[in-house]
Nucleic acid binder design. Structure first.
Ligand code: MN
Ligand code: MN
Ligand code: ZN
Ligand code: ZN
Lengths: 143, 143
DNA sequence: TAACTAATTTGTAATGATTATAATTTTATA
DNA sequence: TATAAAATTATAATCATTACAAATTAGTTA
């Protein structure tokens, strides 16, 4: 079935299954560009005009709380959302604004554990200028 | 002199020296608990009632742009600020809300460079329950 | 020093993301 | 099917941040 995958995700955490939550999960599975709550809301509203912004926020919160999705703070402006697969870091381009996955795991967790804090989330991000934006700049200089 | 240290920081980056900027730098140097813009504003307003919130935001922005201070996104709610010394990570306690320095450097920068993005900032943070909050919970169970 | 220009500060209003609230609808249970 | 609990919806409120224009301050030149 189309939604079986997401139904199981919710069942495993005994979260009540609703059409809205399933749609949001499917959206995040399909759109791996770390969308904002508002982007999710406006896109899903096209096929479900009665969808409420509050529902999107509520759903994202409960999914995040149960570690089904990941809420990431990079821009300082708004939260971005990501389906959790393996642990990874992020790169945000200050030029084009994109947030790109960086496929690395953080070797620092052990050190933090040694200090005595209990770690529940690990986040790493870099900021700078992405490869594509750098290449565009070079092209401009050559022309 | 009292402010010489901060005057030099600004001079080195050829940023215009103003009393407000010096006060903000001194505040961040003294308060290493990653305060919000609002906390800086209300505290400094006590000795300078005419201080404007906008000035605090503007100053923080220019200081951050010149890498004199660090703007960190952890809470998703607001930006926190930090005088930059050595590179370090952060730990945010979900219980008490504190943001604690973790004295480690990130060994992942090289890998990100290899991908071709130009890195200007490196951020790492963990979330969980801090040592102190964990100990309080144990005390409660024992009593 | 005085006059002039540019940059900064200030106060206020606007924006935008997120949260609170209460009514309505949907889901789970008996 | 009837009932209770949970989720959704629409709207209003909150809170951090930004925009804007007037007033002040700093830097420069004569
Ligand atoms: Mn990601
Ligand atoms: Mn710090
Ligand atoms: Zn880019
Ligand atoms: Zn704590």
């Amino acid at each position: 079935m189309m939604f079986e995958k997401y139904v199981n995700l919710l069942k495993n955490k005994s979260i009540q299954i609703t059409p809205q939550r399933l749609e949001i999960l499917r959206y995040l599975d399909k759109h791996r560009n770390h969308p904002t709550a508002y982007q999710i809301y406006t896109d899903l509203k096209k096929n479900n005009p009665s969808l409420s912004k509050t529902t999107v926020y509520n759903s994202l919160e409960i999914l995040n709380k149960h570690n089904i999705i990941n809420s990431i703070s990079i821009t300082g402006l708004e939260s971005r959302y990501d389906i959790i697969n393996e642990m990874h870091h992020h790169f945000m381009c200050k030029k084009c604004g994109r947030i790109i996955d960086i496929e690395i795991t953080c070797p620092n967790i052990k050190k933090t554990l040694e200090i005595g804090h209990k770690i529940e989330e690990v986040h790493g991000y870099f900021k700078g200028k992405c490869k594509e934006c750098l290449e565009k700049e070079i092209d401009k200089h050559e022309s």
